[in-house]
Design a protein around this nucleic acid. Sequence first.
RNA 1: UCCCCGGUAGCUCAGCUGGUAGAGCGGGUGGCUGUUAACCACCUUGUCGGCGGUUCGAAUCCGUCCCGGGGAGCCA
Length: 439
Amino acid sequence: MPTTIASAAPAVDIASLAHHTGQTVTLRGWVYHLRSSGKVRFLVLRDGSGMAQGVLVKGRLPEDDFQQFERLTLESSVMLEGLVRAEPRAPGGYELEVTRVIPVQIAPEYPISPKEHGVAFLMDRRHLWLRSPRQQAILRIRDEVCRACRDFFHDRGFVLIDTPILTPTACEGTTSLFETNYLDRGKAYLSQSGQLYLEAAAMALGRVYCFGPTFRAEKSKTRRHLTEFWMVEAEAAFYTLEDIMQLAEALVRFVVLRVLEHQEPQLRLLERDTAPLAEVDGPFPRLSYGQALEELQRHGKDLAWGEDLGADEETVISQLFTRPVLVHRYPKEAKAFYMQPDPEDPRLALCVDMLAPEGYGEIVGGSQRLDDLEALLARIREHNLPQEPLEWYLDLRRYGSVPHSGFGMGIERLVAWICGLHHVRETIPFPRLIDRIYP
RNA sequence: UCCCCGGUAGCUCAGCUGGUAGAGCGGGUGGCUGUUAACCACCUUGUCGGCGGUUCGAAUCCGUCCCGGGGAGCCA
């Protein structure tokens, strides 16, 4: 139950403790750790901004407050009033000499200890797991990544376009969709990409991007897959494949450098070796599909022409370089219906995948879009897609069609790579996986 | 959907070729005036995932189902 007793001292964040040396302040947060050696008691408090140690010395604070310590448990919420002072023995260099202890709510035995836990146990308690320093660091980096993406596009004149989440039909037809009832109008599907809508917006505003959740009902059970994930997608009129490759490269470089610049403490907490990240500050290697096949052959992996690169192949390719690699111009059979054929080799599509280094796989997929109405109609027929729900999309080729290109970047995969995580599930606050929708 | 691995105390795990269920951590009580995942003493904890089978006897062997983890395909 919330306390009705308020502290007279000003409330401050732990992160700003150093600026309040010599002052009496109030910290408000949760108990992270408790230690006692009898008449001297230590309480490590976390408040979201950081952690600080409070010291309770018997006789130097009211006996009632000293005794309140006995009631506290891990993750109990509490307000501590005390004097801030520099203390080399304290973690962080500053501590609070506590003069008042005001419990807000006393927690029962907390299930997550600082010791080891299994993944399933932690995932079932994701709502509590978020409180751990590691998860906080990851979420702060995710926040930085998202803001960097928005800044990048805003700075280049791209307009944010929110594309619909409820859609009447598949964008690509290949992957399975989450289905839902749409009132009296039959089925609707959760968006698996904002691309087609973004193309419409690009014909209105020139350069656009979207940033939102994406849903894929694929039964993919790997470290790189979620059923609900976040994607930033860009689309620009008059952009060629070359333009979009440069844009995607610049975006990844911008985001990674920004995280290195602003989130160094978090990367250190995660024990991430930042040397591979700093590598992005230079041109990304490029490989055509044909060159990729040659490289694979050189490394003992024979792939038939026309086959898409699998996970093993992607790993081999990405390990050839220290920077993300752009693999472009795949056989069009391996790719989606809306891609422009390569004028120099019509068997190829003008598309690109960016593979992250260190085995993290594909983080960007993009292409120049098919802009000719008749060719697009032919491709739709080849892929056995229904034409009627795509009529609006075909209108974009009827009314002032222009060459245009775009790409999508998976936020969780990028964050996983930046943080050096083994699985994307830790990069999103509440992951949705093939067999998990709790909490 | 397919392949591999696992399920034993609140948590992390040990338990060998079948013979009465264990440790560490956590929790509780007491002690300690500077602790750093504190320390010391004592105490606390079980449908061994479910069901069926083999056996004198099953946590252990077999079958099956459930749940979890890792990977593949597909994709970001």
